[in-house]
Amino acid sequence: MAEELTFDIPVGAGVGTRANADGEPVTPKDAATVILLRDGTEGVEVFLQHRVKGMPFAGGMTVFPGGGVDSRDVDTSVSWAGPEPAWWAERFGCDESLARALVCAAVRETFEESGVLLASTGDTVVTDTTPYHDAREKLVSRELSLAAFLEANGLTLRADLLRPWANWVTPPQEPRRYDTCFFVAVLPEGQQADGATSEAVSSGWQRPEEAIADAKEGRRMLMPPTWLTLAELGEFESSAAAQAAEREISKIMPTLVRDGDKVRVILDPA
Protein backbone atom coordinates (compact mmCIF):
# COMPACT_ATOMS: atom_id res chain seq x y z
CA MET A 1 0.00 0.00 0.00
CA ALA A 2 1.26 3.47 -0.84
CA GLU A 3 2.33 5.77 1.96
CA GLU A 4 0.49 9.11 1.98
CA LEU A 5 1.97 12.34 3.32
CA THR A 6 0.29 15.75 3.29
CA PHE A 7 2.03 19.11 3.38
CA ASP A 8 0.26 22.37 4.18
CA ILE A 9 1.69 24.83 1.68
CA PRO A 10 0.48 28.03 0.03
CA VAL A 11 -0.69 28.11 -3.54
CA GLY A 12 2.28 28.78 -5.81
CA ALA A 13 4.93 27.19 -3.60
CA GLY A 14 6.05 25.20 -6.61
CA VAL A 15 5.92 21.57 -5.52
CA GLY A 16 3.51 20.44 -8.22
CA THR A 17 4.57 18.34 -11.19
CA ARG A 18 4.12 19.37 -14.81
CA ALA A 19 1.49 17.30 -16.59
CA ASN A 20 2.41 15.68 -19.89
CA ALA A 21 -0.28 13.08 -20.50
CA ASP A 22 0.21 12.74 -24.26
CA GLY A 23 2.04 9.66 -25.54
CA GLU A 24 3.88 6.88 -23.77
CA PRO A 25 5.85 7.69 -20.59
CA VAL A 26 9.49 8.56 -21.19
CA THR A 27 12.03 6.01 -19.95
CA PRO A 28 13.80 7.49 -16.89
CA LYS A 29 17.48 8.38 -17.26
CA ASP A 30 19.81 7.18 -14.51
CA ALA A 31 21.06 10.01 -12.31
CA ALA A 32 22.84 10.69 -9.04
CA THR A 33 22.29 13.39 -6.43
CA VAL A 34 24.54 14.18 -3.47
CA ILE A 35 23.27 15.72 -0.25
CA LEU A 36 26.26 17.65 1.12
CA LEU A 37 26.19 18.23 4.87
CA ARG A 38 28.19 20.15 7.43
CA ASP A 39 27.75 21.11 11.09
CA GLY A 40 26.85 24.75 11.68
CA THR A 41 26.59 26.66 14.93
CA GLU A 42 22.89 25.77 15.24
CA GLY A 43 22.94 22.25 13.86
CA VAL A 44 23.12 20.36 10.57
CA GLU A 45 23.34 22.46 7.41
CA VAL A 46 22.80 21.30 3.83
CA PHE A 47 24.20 22.72 0.60
CA LEU A 48 21.44 23.87 -1.76
CA GLN A 49 21.43 25.36 -5.23
CA HIS A 50 18.74 27.52 -6.82
CA ARG A 51 18.50 26.38 -10.42
CA VAL A 52 18.21 28.72 -13.39
CA LYS A 53 14.55 29.14 -14.34
CA GLY A 54 15.18 28.28 -17.97
CA MET A 55 16.58 24.82 -17.22
CA PRO A 56 14.59 22.07 -19.01
CA PHE A 57 14.27 20.05 -15.78
CA ALA A 58 13.53 21.51 -12.33
CA GLY A 59 13.99 25.07 -13.59
CA GLY A 60 13.67 27.57 -10.75
CA MET A 61 13.73 24.84 -8.12
CA THR A 62 16.03 24.56 -5.11
CA VAL A 63 17.97 21.30 -5.32
CA PHE A 64 20.98 19.30 -4.16
CA PRO A 65 23.95 18.97 -6.58
CA GLY A 66 23.60 16.16 -9.08
CA GLY A 67 22.89 15.12 -12.63
CA GLY A 68 22.62 12.34 -15.16
CA VAL A 69 24.99 9.40 -15.50
CA ASP A 70 27.52 9.88 -18.31
CA SER A 71 28.36 6.92 -20.57
CA ARG A 72 31.99 7.20 -19.40
CA ASP A 73 31.04 6.87 -15.74
CA VAL A 74 31.10 3.07 -16.17
CA ASP A 75 34.88 3.12 -16.78
CA THR A 76 36.37 0.32 -14.68
CA SER A 77 39.83 1.95 -14.68
CA VAL A 78 38.77 4.49 -12.03
CA SER A 79 41.04 4.29 -8.98
CA TRP A 80 38.59 3.36 -6.21
CA ALA A 81 38.63 3.19 -2.40
CA GLY A 82 35.73 2.22 -0.15
CA PRO A 83 32.69 -0.03 -0.63
CA GLU A 84 32.95 -1.89 -3.93
CA PRO A 85 30.31 -1.62 -6.70
CA ALA A 86 28.76 -4.90 -5.52
CA TRP A 87 27.96 -3.28 -2.16
CA TRP A 88 26.32 -0.30 -3.83
CA ALA A 89 24.45 -2.58 -6.25
CA GLU A 90 22.89 -4.41 -3.31
CA ARG A 91 21.84 -1.15 -1.63
CA PHE A 92 20.29 0.40 -4.73
CA GLY A 93 18.92 -2.83 -6.24
CA CYS A 94 20.79 -2.58 -9.55
CA ASP A 95 23.62 -4.35 -11.35
CA GLU A 96 27.27 -3.69 -10.52
CA SER A 97 27.99 -1.78 -13.71
CA LEU A 98 25.22 0.73 -13.01
CA ALA A 99 26.21 0.92 -9.34
CA ARG A 100 29.77 1.86 -10.35
CA ALA A 101 28.44 4.47 -12.77
CA LEU A 102 26.14 5.97 -10.13
CA VAL A 103 28.96 6.40 -7.61
CA CYS A 104 31.23 7.88 -10.28
CA ALA A 105 28.45 10.23 -11.41
CA ALA A 106 27.86 11.28 -7.80
CA VAL A 107 31.53 12.20 -7.34
CA ARG A 108 31.80 13.88 -10.75
CA GLU A 109 28.60 15.91 -10.50
CA THR A 110 29.41 17.05 -6.95
CA PHE A 111 32.76 18.37 -8.12
CA GLU A 112 31.33 19.96 -11.27
CA GLU A 113 28.45 21.73 -9.52
CA SER A 114 29.87 22.59 -6.09
CA GLY A 115 33.64 22.26 -6.34
CA VAL A 116 33.67 19.59 -3.62
CA LEU A 117 35.92 16.67 -4.56
CA LEU A 118 35.35 13.31 -2.86
CA ALA A 119 38.79 11.95 -3.66
CA SER A 120 42.21 11.47 -2.11
CA THR A 121 45.89 11.42 -2.90
CA GLY A 122 47.03 8.18 -1.36
CA ASP A 123 45.14 7.87 1.91
CA THR A 124 44.76 11.62 2.41
CA VAL A 125 41.43 13.16 1.42
CA VAL A 126 41.79 16.27 -0.75
CA THR A 127 41.61 19.48 1.30
CA ASP A 128 42.36 22.05 -1.42
CA THR A 129 40.67 21.74 -4.81
CA THR A 130 42.10 24.90 -6.40
CA PRO A 131 44.78 22.97 -8.35
CA TYR A 132 41.96 21.21 -10.21
CA HIS A 133 40.10 24.33 -11.39
CA ASP A 134 40.88 23.85 -15.08
CA ALA A 135 40.07 20.14 -14.92
CA ARG A 136 36.71 20.97 -13.35
CA GLU A 137 35.80 23.12 -16.36
CA LYS A 138 36.84 20.33 -18.73
CA LEU A 139 34.70 17.84 -16.82
CA VAL A 140 31.71 20.16 -17.18
CA SER A 141 32.30 20.54 -20.94
CA ARG A 142 32.84 16.76 -21.25
CA GLU A 143 36.34 17.31 -22.67
CA LEU A 144 37.58 15.15 -19.80
CA SER A 145 36.17 12.00 -18.22
CA LEU A 146 36.25 11.33 -14.49
CA ALA A 147 38.62 8.39 -14.97
CA ALA A 148 41.06 10.48 -17.02
CA PHE A 149 40.92 13.34 -14.51
CA LEU A 150 41.65 11.08 -11.56
CA GLU A 151 44.48 9.27 -13.32
CA ALA A 152 46.17 12.45 -14.54
CA ASN A 153 46.22 13.87 -11.03
CA GLY A 154 47.05 10.73 -9.07
CA LEU A 155 43.67 10.79 -7.35
CA THR A 156 41.52 8.00 -5.95
CA LEU A 157 37.72 8.12 -5.84
CA ARG A 158 36.55 7.81 -2.24
CA ALA A 159 33.34 5.80 -2.23
CA ASP A 160 33.66 5.56 1.56
CA LEU A 161 32.83 9.28 1.82
CA LEU A 162 29.37 8.56 0.40
CA ARG A 163 26.40 6.73 1.90
CA PRO A 164 23.15 5.66 0.18
CA TRP A 165 20.10 7.72 1.14
CA ALA A 166 17.14 7.19 -1.26
CA ASN A 167 16.01 6.36 -4.79
CA TRP A 168 13.38 8.55 -6.46
CA VAL A 169 11.80 8.13 -9.88
CA THR A 170 10.18 11.05 -11.73
CA PRO A 171 6.40 10.46 -12.25
CA PRO A 172 5.35 9.19 -15.72
CA GLN A 173 3.47 12.43 -16.47
CA GLU A 174 6.73 14.36 -16.73
CA PRO A 175 8.34 14.95 -20.16
CA ARG A 176 11.81 14.52 -18.62
CA ARG A 177 12.23 11.63 -16.21
CA TYR A 178 15.07 10.45 -13.98
CA ASP A 179 15.71 7.40 -11.86
CA THR A 180 17.82 9.18 -9.26
CA CYS A 181 19.90 7.62 -6.52
CA PHE A 182 20.46 9.98 -3.60
CA PHE A 183 23.73 9.88 -1.67
CA VAL A 184 24.77 11.74 1.47
CA ALA A 185 28.28 13.05 2.16
CA VAL A 186 29.87 15.26 4.81
CA LEU A 187 31.90 18.20 3.49
CA PRO A 188 35.57 17.13 3.64
CA GLU A 189 37.75 19.11 6.04
CA GLY A 190 39.40 22.11 4.37
CA GLN A 191 37.14 22.12 1.31
CA GLN A 192 34.62 24.81 0.38
CA ALA A 193 31.39 24.37 -1.57
CA ASP A 194 30.78 27.11 -4.12
CA GLY A 195 28.16 28.17 -6.61
CA ALA A 196 30.44 28.20 -9.65
CA THR A 197 28.03 26.46 -12.02
CA SER A 198 26.00 27.80 -14.93
CA GLU A 199 23.04 25.70 -13.79
CA ALA A 200 22.38 27.71 -10.63
CA VAL A 201 21.75 31.39 -9.95
CA SER A 202 22.82 31.05 -6.32
CA SER A 203 24.03 28.42 -3.87
CA GLY A 204 24.63 28.18 -0.16
CA TRP A 205 24.29 26.40 3.15
CA GLN A 206 21.06 26.34 5.12
CA ARG A 207 19.47 24.43 7.96
CA PRO A 208 16.87 21.96 6.60
CA GLU A 209 14.01 23.42 8.65
CA GLU A 210 14.80 26.92 7.36
CA ALA A 211 14.74 25.74 3.74
CA ILE A 212 11.32 24.15 4.31
CA ALA A 213 10.04 27.32 6.00
CA ASP A 214 11.18 29.33 2.97
CA ALA A 215 9.23 26.96 0.69
CA LYS A 216 6.09 27.19 2.82
CA GLU A 217 6.28 30.99 2.69
CA GLY A 218 6.88 31.06 -1.07
CA ARG A 219 10.52 32.19 -1.03
CA ARG A 220 11.79 29.06 -2.76
CA MET A 221 10.42 26.05 -4.65
CA LEU A 222 11.09 22.44 -3.70
CA MET A 223 10.27 19.20 -5.46
CA PRO A 224 8.84 16.40 -3.28
CA PRO A 225 12.12 14.43 -2.97
CA THR A 226 13.98 17.55 -1.82
CA TRP A 227 11.23 18.53 0.62
CA LEU A 228 11.00 15.08 2.20
CA THR A 229 14.78 14.69 2.36
CA LEU A 230 15.11 18.03 4.15
CA ALA A 231 12.42 16.97 6.61
CA GLU A 232 14.33 13.76 7.32
CA LEU A 233 17.65 15.56 7.75
CA GLY A 234 16.10 17.90 10.29
CA GLU A 235 15.80 14.96 12.68
CA PHE A 236 19.58 14.53 13.05
CA GLU A 237 21.77 16.33 15.58
CA SER A 238 24.93 16.18 13.48
CA SER A 239 26.12 15.53 9.94
CA ALA A 240 27.97 12.43 11.14
CA ALA A 241 24.76 11.02 12.62
CA ALA A 242 22.92 11.57 9.34
CA GLN A 243 25.67 9.91 7.35
CA ALA A 244 25.77 6.94 9.72
CA ALA A 245 22.01 6.31 9.48
CA GLU A 246 21.15 2.83 8.22
CA ARG A 247 18.51 3.23 5.53
CA GLU A 248 16.59 0.68 3.50
CA ILE A 249 16.50 1.91 -0.09
CA SER A 250 13.54 1.28 -2.39
CA LYS A 251 12.37 3.09 -5.50
CA ILE A 252 9.78 5.79 -4.79
CA MET A 253 7.64 7.53 -7.39
CA PRO A 254 5.52 10.41 -6.00
CA THR A 255 2.01 11.28 -7.05
CA LEU A 256 0.85 14.82 -6.25
CA VAL A 257 -2.77 15.89 -5.75
CA ARG A 258 -3.69 19.53 -5.19
CA ASP A 259 -6.45 20.15 -2.63
CA GLY A 260 -7.10 23.84 -2.09
CA ASP A 261 -4.02 25.30 -0.41
CA LYS A 262 -2.57 21.85 0.30
CA VAL A 263 -0.54 19.40 -1.71
CA ARG A 264 -1.04 15.70 -0.95
CA VAL A 265 2.10 13.74 -1.73
CA ILE A 266 1.44 10.02 -2.24
CA LEU A 267 4.55 7.87 -2.28
CA ASP A 268 4.05 4.90 -4.58
CA PRO A 269 6.48 2.01 -5.17
CA ALA A 270 8.05 2.61 -8.59
Rank of each mutant, 00 (worst) to 15 (best):
P56S: 11
P269N: 13
T6P: 01
F111H: 04
G12P: 05
L228A: 05
L222P: 01
R142H: 14
T110L: 10
T156W: 01
A159S: 09
A105I: 08
A13R: 05
D39A: 09
S238I: 09
D8Q: 12
E4I: 11
R163Q: 15
S239Y: 02
L98M: 12
L139I: 08
R247L: 11
A231L: 03
G115P: 01
V125H: 04
M61L: 12
T197K: 07
V125K: 05
L161K: 02
Q243I: 03
D268L: 09
T229P: 00
A270V: 12
R72C: 11
C181P: 01
A21Y: 05
L230D: 02
I266N: 04
A185V: 03
V63A: 01
F92E: 03
A101F: 03
Y178L: 15
G14I: 03
D128A: 10
A89W: 07
F111V: 08
E90K: 09
W168F: 09
D160P: 08
G122N: 13
A200Y: 10
S77K: 09
W80A: 02
T27G: 10
T226G: 02
R136Y: 05
T170M: 04
T27A: 12
D261M: 13
L157Y: 01
G12H: 04
T226C: 05
A211C: 12
I212D: 01
P208I: 01
V263Q: 09
P83D: 11
L98H: 06
Y178G: 02
A166D: 08
V46N: 00
A13Q: 05
R158E: 06
L256R: 05
G154D: 01
Q192I: 12
L98K: 07
G40Q: 06
C94D: 08
L117I: 02
K53A: 13
K29S: 15
G195I: 01
V103E: 00
V140S: 11
E199K: 13
V140I: 15
Q206S: 13
E217H: 14
F111W: 10
V52F: 03
L228N: 01
S71A: 15
A86P: 11
G82M: 07
A241C: 11
D70L: 10
G12L: 07
L161I: 07
V74H: 07
P83A: 14
P83Y: 07
V186H: 00
S114T: 08
S77I: 03
L102E: 00
A242K: 00
H50T: 13
R51Q: 10
L157Q: 03
E96D: 15
E90I: 03
E189I: 12
A211W: 02
T33Q: 05
S203R: 00
R91E: 11
A2D: 14
R264N: 14
S198R: 14
E246P: 03
R177Y: 06
T124E: 14
I252V: 14
A19K: 10
L162D: 01
R176F: 09
V78Y: 00
Y178F: 15
V169A: 10
V126R: 00
S238G: 13
A135I: 06
L233H: 02
D261W: 10
R220F: 04
A231V: 03
R108L: 05
F7G: 07
P164T: 04
F57A: 11
E237G: 14
A2M: 13
F183I: 08
L187C: 03
K216L: 14
P131H: 08
D134A: 12
E209A: 14
D123V: 09
M253C: 15
S71W: 11
Y178R: 10
D179A: 09
L187V: 02
L187W: 00
D268I: 06
G115K: 02
A99W: 06
